[in-house]
Design a protein around this nucleic acid. Structure first.
Ligand SMILES: [Mg+2]
Length: 718
DNA sequence: CATGGTCTGTGG
DNA sequence: CCACAGAC
């Protein structure tokens, strides 16, 4: 039973894509997202100019004067911290959403590291939308959100279904020209094999049609391809993907070629891939474990393979050693775990060490407001509430040259946790004053975290009344994102967590409806199947049936294969990619049209050529910048709120500069049509969900995740 | 100059 | 309940 088919999807310079979509910045524009003075995400056109993550904006602008910079959302406005220079008093403006226009040039210093915190909620929301789309289009897959811009998918069941269906399908004149035979198993499987080759790089040479599992991988690649098309059309984001038999290899695959390229790593190529793979690129080997292995003289996975088992056991213990041994060979049994909702949320801020209690309280207020807002949003969406709150702080008396230490303290939650900023601040500050101040000062970082969510009672009113805290029901708290208008010490009961943010409740409802909507049902029931898609695609595309890319490359090592891809053969490869996308597009169009007809007859407005459902023209406002409200209220920032600074690491590199014209064309189109339709016909159907879960949950008898073996090394002794 | 801010999971 | 490791 063997092999699973696993996908890893990794969005290309994600933050940048999110911002470019939001601000309708043309796709080929060099663009980067900044946080304070540094860059935390850089798109590929900008990378082509030599701009990299971590670069200072000065330097970046020098390399590329036309670089468009977008600052991450910030929260809280001045008035904290000694830095007088206040500007408060202008309503609850959540700080700005900037765009350092190319010419307008005026950067209204609205982003201030000393008085504000960065907030990543925008990207979290986008990710939630992505996940919803994936679930809708792959209801039979197990989907694990692995980070803000990555997902793992176990599509084994989808592949099985697809192959089963193919058996019953007419033995169509499938391609497979090049002398390969359909081989035993599923007679008419040819089209799948073809479809998979669209733009996919196969490490180690073309897939072997005579191998049962490689045919399955081919189907998996087709699914990946289709889903990437869907994500591009519906969410507006490009992604790279890896297709393999386990998470480990799938992840390596997605990083191997980018942007917007998918890579298949069949089991036979595992050794090829692992042999010279730097340990750092192997999941779970990037930290202490990697260091220790390095100390043993290993820099690559291949070198670790050579270590005597006894050595590994001596250093890491039996279980961990075994896991390591498998991992460096490209093997892993770690299951894909259904995970869509965050298990915890936290808001944090680092600053110069201070003993100023008023300032600290001010920061706590900002953090609490953000967290309360997010809690409210989460509650409206999922009907759940955190059971535990934790305050963590960094600082205190610190020996010279020693790292500051950080500690966390459970926050008492009288009467339960509630999405009320004032209550949170009060609890946090009280705790800090009474129990930690002495050991926490000077303090250089504060964070408030919420975790251990529990479902709220049932439906409405009465039953949950007990849970709800005083004033703020979901509605009020939602606004939390607003700025911290109140100066440091002052928590007027008056300025509730209110916020200017418009209709949060409704929006949240909509979101809710969206995810649980009939979408899944309709798709599952009537949508085109992967199979049909493959067949049509194969016919249109490659009547001769050759597995495009794969077939062209002679049996050869991975390196040659890849080299060729990047080098002279790039053109050919791009063509492949183009056609693959066009096909994906067509499919998506069809699906969308079908869905539209089934679900929302009232909002038929297919745009002539390409039925992008419900797209509205955007205010082609030149002034890109587009302040907050500009044009697309579409992205409906349901509830400002949110949280924290900083950056994520999008570790894509390689292949910068590869530009896919087709992709750009699509992106342009999408931008022209403005953001996608946010409204989804909502309906009750939660049954669909339940059904899906049931199906999935019995998928695997719960293998233990690899993470449990890679966790911290147990302390010896005792 | 340095990231920082979020997240998840384990061990004690 | 808390510290720590790992990832992005
Ligand atoms: Mg990533």
């Amino acid at each position: 039973m063997a092999h699973r088919v696993i996908l890893h999807i990794d969005f290309d310079s994600y933050y940048t894509q999110v911002e470019m979509k939001r601000l309708s910045i043309p796709p080929e524009t060099p663009c980067a997202v900044q946080q304070w003075e540094g860059l935390i995400a850089v798109n590929y056109p900008a990378r082509a100019k030599g701009i990299t993550r971590h670069m200072r904006i000065r330097e970046a602008k020098k390399l590329c004067p036309e670089l468009v910079l977008v600052h991450v959302e910030t929260l809280g406005d001045s008035s904290l911290q000694g830095t007088a220079a206040n500007q408060q008093q202008h309503g609850g403006g959540a700080a700005a959403e900037d765009e350092g226009g190319a010419e307008g040039g005026e950067q209204e210093e609205r982003h201030d590291r000393l008085t504000q915190k960065a907030c990543l909620e925008r990207y979290r929301r986008s990710t939630a939308e992505v996940l919803a789309v994936l679930h809708r289009h792959a209801p039979a897959a197990v989907i694990e959100k692995a980070s803000i811009d990555e997902v793992f998918m176990d599509v084994t069941a989808m592949v099985d279904a697809e192959l089963r269906q193919q058996q019953h399908a007419s033995p169509a004149d499938h391609p497979n020209g090049g002398g390969t035979r359909g081989s035993g198993g599923g007679g008419g499987g040819g089209s799948s094999v073809d479809a998979f080759a669209w733009g996919a790089v196969v490490v180690g040479g073309p897939l072997d049609v005579s191998s049962e599992f490689e045919r399955r991988l081919a189907v998996g690649a087709g699914i990946a391809c289709r889903l990437r098309g869907v994500l591009l059309r519906e969410n507006g984001y490009t992604a790279s993907a890896g297709i393999a038999a386990n998470k480990l290899l799938a992840k390596i695959g997605s990083a191997m070629h980018k942007p917007n390229i998918q890579t298949v790593i069949p089991p036979r190529s595992a050794q090829l891939v692992m042999q010279d793979l730097p340990l750092k690129k192997l999941r779970n080997f990037g930290g202490k474990l990697g260091e220790q292995l390095e100390a043993l003289g290993c820099a690559t996975a291949g070198q670790v393979q050579q270590l005597p088992l006894a050595t590994l056991v001596a250093h890491f213990g039996g279980e961990r050693a075994a896991t390591i041994q498998l991992a460096v060979r490209g093997e892993s049994q770690e299951p894909v775990q259904e995970r869509e909702r965050p298990k915890s949320m936290l808001a944090a801020k680092s600053f110069e060490p201070t003993r100023d209690m008023a300032a600290l309280e001010g920061w706590m207020r900002v953090l609490a407001q953000e967290l309360a807002g997010r809690m409210a949003t989460d509650e409206a969406e999922y009907r759940r509430r955190p059971r535990n709150l934790v305050l963590t702080y960094r600082g205190g008396p610190t020996p010279r040259n020693a790292p500051e230490r950080s500690r966390s303290r459970a926050m008492p939650r009288p009467g339960g946790v509630c999405p009320n900023a004032d209550a949170l601040v009060a609890a946090a500050f009280h705790l800090f004053q009474t129990k930690c101040a002495a050991e926490a000062l000077p303090c250089s970082r504060l964070a408030i975290a919420a975790s251990d969510f529990v479902d709220l009672p049932a439906d409405n009113g009465s039953s949950i009344a007990r849970f709800l805290v005083p004033a703020a029901a979901a509605g009020a708290g939602t606004a939390g994102g607003g700025s911290a208008t109140s100066p440091s010490g002052n928590h007027a009961a008056g300025d509730q967590p209110t916020a200017p943010s418009a209709q949060s409740p409704q929006q949240q409802q909509q979101l809710h409806g969206k995810r649980k909507g009939t979408g899944a049902a309709a798709t599952a029931a009537g949508g085109p199947t992967v199979s049909s898609m493959f067949q049509r695609a194969a016919k249109r595309q490659q009547p001769d049936g050759r597995a495009a890319l794969g077939a062209e490359l002679p049996e050869q090592g991975m390196h040659e294969c890849v080299t060729q891809l990047q080098g002279q053969d790039q053109e050919a490869q791009q063509q492949q990619a183009h056609s693959h996308q066009e096909l994906a597009q067509q499919e998506v169009q069809q699906q969308q049209q079908e869905q539209a007809q089934e679900q929302a007859p009232q909002q038929q407005q297919h745009t002539p050529g390409r039925g992008l459902p419900s797209a509205r023209p955007s205010p082609a406002g030149s002034g890109a910048a587009a302040a907050p409200g500009a044009g697309a209220s579409a992205s409906g920032p349901a509830a400002a709120t949110t949280a924290s600074p900083a950056a994520a690491a999008e570790d894509e590199q390689a292949l910068a500069g590869v530009d896919l014209e087709e992709q750009q064309r699509i992106m342009k189109e999408i931008h022209m049509l403005s953001t996608l339709n946010r409204k989804q016909p909502e309906s009750a159907g939660s049954g669909q969900h339940a059904a899906r879960r049931t199906t999935k949950s019995r998928q695997q008898p719960q293998q233990r995740g690899i993470s449990s073996f890679f966790g911290r090394q147990p302390k010896k002794g005792g």
